[in-house]
Simulated scan of single mutants.
Amino acid sequence: MLLNLQPPTPLEYFASLVQSDAELPLMEAAISLAQDEYPELDLEQTLSVIDNMQARLRKRNAQQGTALERIHQLNQFFYGELGFSLNSNDYYDPDNSYLHHVLQSRRGIPISIGVLWLDLARSIGLDAYGVSFPGHFMLKVLLSQGQVILDPLTGKSFSSHELTHQLQAQIPRLTLYNEETMPLGLFLQSASSREIITRMLRNLKEIFRVQQDAGRQLAVMERLVVVQPQDWLERRDRGLAYEALGRTQEAIADFQAYLDFSREATDASEVAQKLHVLKNQA
């Protein structure tokens, strides 16, 4: 019997991490997103850096006191001593989404900084979660008397008025809601690990779309299809990337899958036309 001794590809490794919702390791999966750009990335070394940060935080007895006191200690350590903040000089740099780079530079975007804060918060016993708020990833900590919503870039809490104001600014993007029926609580639900990884990947997908880098965009889309196998829009978009790169057979397969499961989609006829043309070219 022959054994396959080849190490898994980055995509195969990622697929093994995200196959189960119950056991999806958020930090390891988030770090692994950089493997397409940095194939020599040492995940274990990056995880050990985070472990060291946790140990330093616990030495300050940060797991003691009330939840609000622990949040205060964590924020002093994370934003004050370690100096994590927004990369305002180059917000759309892909490196802002790669956690090993964020750990080195101490600069990132809300979701990458938020994932690191979240891991430290849980290490000191805080009941903390990510929140996929429109336009700006946020953090949430459950308290005995309610919850507090935090900005991952500063650790400062938002009032209900501030959250409502931010949500109102997103109304043009939220086609299902209007200003009168906009349910704030709906947008403050805890995000699952799968949802957080998906949002990180979609950020990268948009960056590479704007840069017109079909190759790098495709690598991200491969992961999106793995992490969201029932999202047929992602399958359609991967087909478009395959088409742009001249990979006709793969594009045909993705367009066909999209049409099979999304026959009522508004762009179904357009995709069907693309599929017809590609099949005639194959």
Rank of each mutant, 00 (worst) to 15 (best):
G108W: 01
D21E: 15
A251C: 05
A15W: 06
L118K: 03
P134E: 08
E162N: 04
D237P: 07
A244R: 13
G146V: 11
F261Y: 15
I113P: 00
F261H: 15
Q76M: 09
L167Q: 00
Y242E: 00
L278K: 04
E40K: 13
V226P: 05
L33K: 00
K279L: 12
Q230F: 14
Q249A: 15
A253F: 10
L74I: 03
W232D: 11
K205Y: 05
A55V: 13
D231A: 14
F158V: 00
S144D: 15
A62I: 07
R106M: 07
L17D: 08
L224K: 06
E28N: 04
P229V: 08
S192L: 00
F14R: 10
L118C: 07
P7Q: 10
Y79I: 08
S269E: 13
S193Y: 04
Q166I: 02
P25G: 10
D260G: 04
F14Q: 09
E81M: 08
D90H: 13
Q73D: 13
R60E: 12
I31A: 09
Y79S: 02
L5Q: 12
Y177Q: 00
A244E: 13
L118N: 08
H72W: 01
E28S: 09
L43I: 15
I71M: 04
D231H: 12
H101V: 12
A30V: 07
L224W: 09
H136S: 01
A257E: 11
T181Y: 00
L68G: 05
E270T: 12
T9A: 12
I109S: 03
A30R: 03
